[in-house]
Simulated scan of single mutants.
Amino acid sequence: MTEDKAVPTNGMLGIVIPDSQLAREATQLIRDTESELLFNHSTRVYLWGALLGKQQNLVFDPELLYIAAMFHDIGLTSVFRESHLRFEVDGANAARDFLRSHHIDEADVPKVWTAVALHTTPGIPEHMHGEIALVQAGAGMDVAGRGFEEFTDEQRAAVIEAYPRGPDFASKMIDAFYDGMKHRPGTTFGTFNDDFLAHKDPGFVRVNVCSIMLNSSWAESSRR
């Protein structure tokens, strides 16, 4: 059975962070791998997601949500500097391998994999399992303030007190995204992740799907 520990937020949240052995080992792995910036961000993603899940009466497993939140940005770290997969897929694969190494029910593994893989893909996760919807919602809240008004002043203050954003959070997160993807720019095609490269690198050229279509082999064959 999963044990839980209260979040040190003066009792204002009414939620807990899972304290099972699985959750503790995930926490330690992420602490050892990620910067404090990303670790605190990942924990806040869980807290925002769990709060929304409670408010909206969504069905979700707090432990699975926590694992997905912990792993959702690990693909941005130096561990994956040689990877040419999307960073979201690196994180999803890492979460999957972690769960399988702990012999978690195989039926639960795809929920976590998909939650991590789709956390930068708005418009789809909200129609899926609670864990998938809530990781995406929590990440959007923490990075861009999406859904900001759905939380009370007290809730926002409690989360930030427990896991601070720190000064210049937005700029530091942009740097983290850029550092995690600058070696694999092609993986940003079709996502908003190319915004990070364009913001940091004046020489970055976005791929335009219309140009691809107009210059594809199909277009060329129609001219013959």
Rank of each mutant, 00 (worst) to 15 (best):
V16S: 12
M181F: 07
S221C: 06
T33A: 07
I74W: 10
L29F: 10
V16I: 01
R96V: 05
T187D: 02
F196K: 04
N215M: 06
K111M: 09
E88D: 07
H72C: 03
L76S: 12
L47C: 14
L37V: 06
V79K: 15
D195K: 11
D90Q: 09
K54V: 04
K172N: 11
K5D: 02
V89A: 03
K172C: 07
D153Q: 11
A170G: 05
R100M: 08
D179I: 03
D32M: 12
M181P: 04
K54W: 07
E131M: 05
T9K: 00
M181T: 05
I74N: 03
F196D: 02
V159H: 11
S211Y: 15
E3H: 15
F148I: 02
A157R: 10
G130W: 08
I15Q: 02
W48T: 06
A139V: 08
I15A: 00
R223S: 15
R224T: 07
K182P: 00
D105W: 03
P185H: 03
F39L: 14
L22S: 04
L118V: 07
G130T: 08
T77N: 03
Q28A: 03
I17L: 10
Y178R: 04
A144S: 15
K54Q: 15
G130D: 01
H129T: 13
L65R: 02
L99N: 05
R223N: 13
M181N: 02
A176N: 05
G180F: 02
N57Y: 11
L47F: 07
W113H: 14
I160E: 15
L85Q: 12
V159G: 11
A94Q: 09
D108Y: 11
R81E: 11
H129P: 06
I212G: 12
W113M: 13
A26D: 00
A69I: 09
R146S: 14
G203E: 09
A137E: 09
Y178I: 14
A158N: 01
Q28G: 03
L13P: 00
V159Q: 09
A158H: 11
S211H: 15
T27F: 00
L22T: 08
V159L: 14
S221L: 10
Y66K: 01
G138N: 07
L85P: 01
T9S: 13
N40A: 07
T120Q: 15
D201V: 06
Y178L: 08
L22P: 05
R223E: 15
L47P: 06
F151E: 04
R184I: 00
E131P: 04
F148P: 03
T188E: 04
A162T: 02
A94V: 02
D201L: 05
R44V: 13
K111W: 08
E25L: 00
E34Q: 14
D179M: 09
